[in-house]
């Protein structure tokens, strides 16, 4: 695939930002400063980066409990993301949501979701909104292999198919739902094959290669924008970390974990950028330093932000009404 140096560098920046942001979240989580629980996207960066590189600011995404990467790829600010993860008033959701409910509607990021499969129908509805308004916006539903067995996916695929909605259903197949292997829980080897049952294209991309994801998503997004309807795009990927931070991971062994990280999409992208002469080692080091500084800043920003005032607990239960 023909990709410009700028595209490669931009994909790399997104993936590295996700990686470094998440590594920091994991580290800070272990200190006990971050409330609740967090699910790491490390190893899956190529999916969010490759898909969202095809999206505009006014396109929509819906996300999962493992949503930090989708946020970053859709352009959310690190400071406000981190403050949300810390439960602070300056967070994207003013501390009401946390890691599993991070959202930024100004960027078309319609929410991480702690209900497995919870975002799938919502993306379908965002696609419907674009269709009714007559715009060429598209919506992407990110969901896991586990979520692929929720009835709502099947209802949504059918709905989007009959209404030719501009929706891309992106199954991030990382092989496991918590401890349950996709091979056990799913009746077919490829979730994408289920598209046939709804008369829509089902494609598969290798998540170890961000360019493959980019290309597959480009086709699906182009179809959607052109009014040709939905696509089910399955990306085979790997979750390097536990299901959540603190997962004892008894369902896989050290050897498997080592194999996983040997196929790091971020590493191979860096190798390619260096080999093609699009950046030098020094450039990459500088970029890393820049992102690390931004992540440091985000943590400081989060720590400096106040906790929400308990007297505001009843605010936002209903949207603040705008006069019609």
């Amino acid at each position: 695939m023909d990709v410009s140096a700028d595209t490669l560098r931009s994909l790399h920046r997104t993936m590295l930002t996700i990686r470094l942001f998440e590594q920091r979240v994991a580290r800070e989580f272990r200190t006990g400063e971050i409330p609740g629980f967090v699910h790491m996207y490390i190893g899956e960066e190529a999916v969010a980066a490759g898909i969202c590189a095809n999206l505009r600011d006014d396109d929509y995404v819906t996300s999962t409990h493992r949503g930090h990467g989708h946020c970053i790829a859709k352009g959310c600010e690190l400071d406000a993301m981190m403050a949300e993860i810390y439960g602070r008033e300056d967070g994207l959701c003013k501390g009401r949501g946390g890691s599993m409910h991070i959202a930024d509607f100004s960027r078309g990021m319609l929410g991480a979701n702690a209900i497995v499969g919870g975002g799938i129908a919502l993306a379908t509805g965002a696609g419907l909104a674009a269709t009714v308004r007559g715009t060429d916006q598209v919506a992407v539903a990110f969901f896991g292999d586990g979520a692929a067995n929720q009835g709502v996916l099947h209802e949504s695929l059918n709905l989007a198919a009959i209404w030719r909605l501009p929706v891309i259903y992106v199954c991030e197949n990382n092989g496991f739902a918590e401890s349950t292997p996709a091979a056990y829980a799913t009746s077919v080897a490829d979730v994408a094959s289920r598209a046939a049952g709804y008369g829509i294209p089902g494609t598969i991309a290798d998540g170890r290669d961000v360019l493959e994801v980019l290309a597959a998503a480009r086709d699906a997004v182009a179809r959607a924008r052109a009014g040709e309807g939905p696509t089910l795009l399955e990306v085979k990927t790997y979750r390097f970390m536990g299901h959540f931070e603190g997962d004892p991971e008894k369902y896989r062994d050290d050897e498997e974990r080592k194999e996983l990280t040997a196929n790091d999409a971020l590493g191979s992208l860096e190798a390619r950028i260096l080999a093609d002469g699009h950046a030098s080692e020094a450039d990459l080091d500088a970029l890393r330093g820049e992102i690390e500084a931004a992540v440091d800043h985000a943590v400081e920003f989060a720590r400096a932000s106040a906790f929400p005032d308990p007297s505001t607990i009843e605010r936002y239960v209903y949207p603040e009404q705008v006069a019609q």
């Binding site: 439960g87 959701c93 009401r96 949501g97 409910h101 906790f307 929400p308 308990p310 607990i313 239960v317």
Partner: peptide, 11 residues
């Protein structure tokens, strides 16, 4: 209160 359960510990 008549609210969903908030995330932030202070709430």
């Amino acid at each position: 209160p008549h609210t969903p359960v908030p995330f932030s510990p202070s709430l």
